[in-house]
Design a protein around this nucleic acid. Structure first.
Length: 930
DNA sequence: TCTCTGCCTAGAGGA
């Protein structure tokens, strides 16, 4: 922002001290928090708050007055007055807000009758999240933070299946035999079978429970759909805000059709997002008049509570619907157990406004996760919303552990903190198994992860997708607009649809988008924003193929579409979830806390004979024959370990071979193994080697990310080829495999909720951050980390997080325990001269060549003499005798100093480049190839 | 000073 001078002037002149940030802080906040937010007016208006003042109006009531601007130059200022409850919104100078309502002569008035203020509108919150905040705001925030702590339950599975059956039926038929068929078909889907496995349920019981609901489905359809005359439809007392009359009137309700299923909507106007179970077309017959409305229908399978939470969800959906079509003003809440349907009006006054205020509170807490302490510049985690004083509510809360942990480890360490006294014993009880060191570890990692996630957030401009026109976005290379659908949409199964697109005129512009990238598909029209998500399957000069989560064939063929790259959503959920799990009061977590946080010395058993099964001895001996000495030591160490082993894989020492051999030995001994790494390619490299040894394995993870030769071992492929349609078959698959392979992040898979492995092997461990590396370790008795901390550490972008120690991998941390470490020192990649370089610089002379052959190997250049001769024709060759030294096979290492060439570096947007050095390398390579 | 990879996700219900 270049207008600092003006801004400074503005702040000094217009506003009172207590509400004004110093200009430099103000500028810093705006730049770091809202990079490139385009201030605009109109439908998607974005205002910057310049100043906040609380004043008393004529009636003696408090109101908040904001000075705001929607002009990038900060030139045109407007006022916004917040009255009544809106006055309590925690809005500060430097914040970005969105306003709904009327602006009369430069003044917006938001009160209980009209208008909304949306704080940080580009943060979208889901309907369920906001609804859950009604009871406990703290829990809503904790649930967003520690997503994986909310456990899966039987009721949830039943709910999901019933939703699906109803959704299929409404676009097909509610005839009893059809419903039976749909139910049967649905519980055979792999995704549901996997959940049944996770929860250790019985498929027949689930089927029976589903079937109990079906008569109510038919009853509802009989009541509300397909009748002869309008008078036959059920009567409901209702009033719609725009109907004029304020009184309830009796109407007959007819559900005509389903307009959409699982419609997914993002609303950058209200700062909301969500999925609508069923979007229904409804005829409201009132006397002789009939009104047709498209409205949200929310399905519930639990108790018929008609609770505020349920109704609130519907009300929020009426706001979401406005992104696509006219305000529905009301929605429906249907309880599938009884077939009872409730009318939910969404008045401005007491309903929508209240919920948006809650949304604003959530936005405030989500935005302010970090605080600088008042005294110094110390960065720390901020307090969460207050703990409520309702033991009843807390009793069943799935976030209780995190709530107590956060209070104890973070909030109670602050100067000012207030915990309800009645809750103190509960917090103590929940955390009494933790030592101070554990609380400190949690607090530090929580802070570092939060810092890191924020630094990444700053780089992404998520809101560009909705605030920037296609033409502008295309320049960045992350968007392709002006597309039309070609060919038919193909349903691939498990909710994926293959789409083909073509530029309406001309070819696809220059783009960053590649196969495998996650994308968001929108129509060019505003009402078709974020219709579907998916990923690019293939891209050519003229066409793009995508796998999307919705079938877009319902749209007219001429609809202009655009693809936006989905901003890389840096995964803070997995590491935070692992961190929270590490603090749980379980034996597995306790052991890991002892080993990792308190660095308890790892134990080993003395004799191999006690672990090696008798019948495996010969096989193991045979496998060991092919190994060098340090590799054999590594095998032995792992077999003897009771806790963990670290294998240092120095460059060229056959790390992959070692892991592969280790797996073979463990397999031969009958141990179950979990094989993981940070990247898919590292996992597959091991599997490619392993595939030769008749070892059965199950590769988890998205099939398209897996190496083509390994894809036949992925779960998806196995389920398809073996046609797995029952829980029994799935269980057989999961239980028969000894080796399970996946990335460290892929640990959310149902197998892990029921299986414990004897060993977990983590490759690339020195490049993985601690809380991520932790994930797979919960599922095994012992673990082996393979890595080399002399090579790259985990990537940490945030400077503060780096300073706090976030680049320390688990591998490096545990390396302090020397007795757990084996070093692979025999290498096969480099001759002795090349080796001595890294050996002297970093490996303390520990590296050795695998054989004489390796030590003395030199490059064979069959045309060396000819090329030399040829080069002598070039004048600059004889002028530059350095080149002969480079080519000379007996001179395998040489340094080329490019300082005087000159070869200056160039700073570019994504790093540094050196064109001259690149040219030299191309030249040298081409000469070598010759 | 440099390195850039993983995740399907909003809502399934309980009180």
């Amino acid at each position: 922002m270049e207008q600092l001078g003006e801004l400074e002037l503005l702040m000094e002149k217009s506003f009172g001290e207590e509400t004004t940030l110093p200009a430099d802080l103000f500028q810093k906040k705006v730049v770091s928090s809202f990079p490139k937010t385009v201030l605009t007016q109109g439908m998607d208006n974005r205002y910057l708050v310049l100043a906040v003042d609380v004043v008393q109006n004529e009636e003696g009531n408090h109101e908040k007055q904001l000075i705001i601007t929607a002009s990038q130059s900060l030139e045109y200022k407007e006022r916004c007055i917040l009255r009544n409850d809106w006055c309590s919104i925690p809005v500060e100078p430097g914040d970005i807000i969105h306003l709904e309502g009327d602006c009369t002569s430069g003044t917006w008035i938001i009160d209980e009758h009209f208008g909304y203020l949306i704080l940080y509108p580009d943060m979208l919150f889901s309907g369920t999240s906001i609804a859950s905040s009604i009871r406990c705001m703290r829990r809503a925030i904790l649930s967003e933070t520690f997503r994986s702590s909310d456990p899966a339950t039987r009721q949830m599975l039943i709910g999901t299946v019933l939703h699906e059956v109803f959704q299929k039926a409404i676009s097909d038929s509610f005839a009893p035999e059809k419903l039976q068929e749909l139910a049967f078909q649905t519980i055979q889907e792999t995704k549901h079978l996997k959940e049944m496995y996770r929860l250790n349920l019985n498929q027949d019981e689930i089927k029976q429970e589903i079937e109990e609901y079906l008569p109510s489905f038919s009853k509802w359809a009989g009541d509300f759909m397909h009748k002869d005359t309008s008078a036959d439809f059920p009567q409901i007392q209702l009033s719609l805000p725009t109907n004029g009359s304020k009184n309830n009137s009796t109407c007959n309700i007819e559900v005509v059709n389903s307009v959409d299923i699982e419609e997914s909507i993002w609303s950058p106007r209200f700062g909301l997002k969500g999925k609508i179970d069923v979007t229904v077309g409804v005829k409201i017959h009132q006397g002789s008049k009939t009104k047709y409305k498209v409205m949200p229908l929310e399905l519930k399978t639990g108790k018929e509570s008609n609770s505020i939470e349920h109704r609130s969800q519907v009300i929020l959906y009426t706001l979401l619907c406005q992104e696509r079509r006219a305000d529905p003003e009301a929605g429906w809440l249907l309880y599938l157990k009884t077939g009872q349907m409730y009318f939910v009006p969404a008045n401005h006054l007491d309903k929508r406004g209240e919920l948006l205020k809650l949304r604003n509170q959530m936005a405030f807490f989500s935005f302010h996760r970090i605080s600088k302490s008042v005294s110094g510049q110390k960065t720390q985690l901020a307090s969460l919303p207050q703990i409520i004083e309702e033991e009843k509510t807390c009793k069943y809360c799935s976030q209780m552990g995190n709530c107590a942990l956060y209070s104890r480890a973070i909030e109670q360490q602050m100067e000012h903190n207030s915990v309800p006294v009645v809750m103190l014993p509960k917090i103590k009880e929940e955390t009494q198994h933790l030592k101070l060191t554990h609380l400190e570890y949690f607090s530090l990692w929580c802070l570092m992860l939060t810092l890191e996630s924020q630094s990444k957030d700053n780089k992404k401009n998520y809101q560009n997708i909705w605030l920037m026109p296609t033409s502008k976005m295309e320049e960045s290379g992350n968007c392709i607009g002006n597309l039309i659908r070609t060919k038919n949409v193909k349903a691939i199964g498990n909710g994926q649809y293959l789409h083909h697109f073509q530029r309406k005129n001309g070819s696809i512009p220059v783009t960053n988008l590649m196969a495998g990238d996650r994308i968001i598909l929108s129509g060019e029209e505003r009402t078709l924003f974020a219709l579907s998500r998916g990923y690019v399957k293939g891209i050519t000069m003229t066409t793009v193929t995508c796998l999307l989560d919705r079938n877009l064939s319902v749209l007219p063929e001429s609809t202009l579409l655009r693809l936006d790259q989905e901003e890389k959503n840096c995964d803070i959920d997995t590491p935070l979830g692992n961190l929270s799990k590490l603090m749980e009061n379980t034996n597995v977590s306790k052991k890991l806390r002892d080993l990792i946080i308190d660095l308890q010395e790892p134990q080993f058993i003395p004799y191999l004979s006690s672990v090696l099964p008798h019948n495996a001895k010969d096989t193991v001996a045979c496998i060991l024959k092919g190994l060098n000495k340090p590799q054999r030591q590594a095998m032995k160490k792992v077999l003897l370990s009771k806790d963990y082993t670290l294998i240092v894989g120095m460059p060229g020492t056959g790390k992959t071979t070692t892991i592969c051999t280790l797996v073979r030995i463990l397999y031969a001994c009958g141990f179950s193994v979990l094989l993981t790494s940070y990247t898919h390619s590292a996992v597959d490299n091991i599997l490619l080697k392993l595939a030769k040894f008749k070892i059965g394995f199950l590769r988890l993870g998205q099939t398209h990310k897996v190496h083509p030769d390994i894809q036949k071992f992925t779960e998806e492929e196995i389920c398809r080829s073996k046609s797995i349609k029952s829980l029994a078959l799935l269980e057989e698959l999961y239980n028969s495999q000894l080796i399970v392979a996946t990335t460290c992040m892929g640990i959310n898979h149902p197998v892990f909720s029921r299986k414990t492995f004897d060993f977990c092997i983590v490759d690339e461990a020195s490049q993985i951050s601690q809380p991520v590396c932790l994930g797979p370790l919960f599922f095994s008795r012992r673990f082996v980390l393979v890595g080399d901390h002399q090579q790259l550490p985990p990537l940490v972008l945030n400077q503060e997080a780096r300073a706090l120690g976030m680049t320390e991998s688990l591998f490096k941390r545990l390396e302090q325990n020397k007795n757990a470490v084996v070093q692979l020192t025999v290498q096969y990649r480099m001759n002795s001269k090349i080796m001595s370089l890294s050996n002297k610089l970093t490996y303390e002379g520990k590296l050795e060549c695998g054989s004489e052959k390796v030590a003395n190997a030199v490059i064979i250049l069959p045309n060396f003499k000819d090329v030399k001769l040829e080069l002598e024709f070039y004048a600059d060759y004889s002028d530059n005798p350095w080149l002969i030294k480079v080519l000379e096979p007996n001179n395998p290492v040489c340094f080329l100093n490019t300082d005087k060439v000159p070869a200056p570096e160039q700073v570019e947007k994504s790093g540094v480049s050196n064109i001259t050095e690149a040219r030299l390398i191309v030249f040298l390579t081409s000469v070598f190839i010759k």
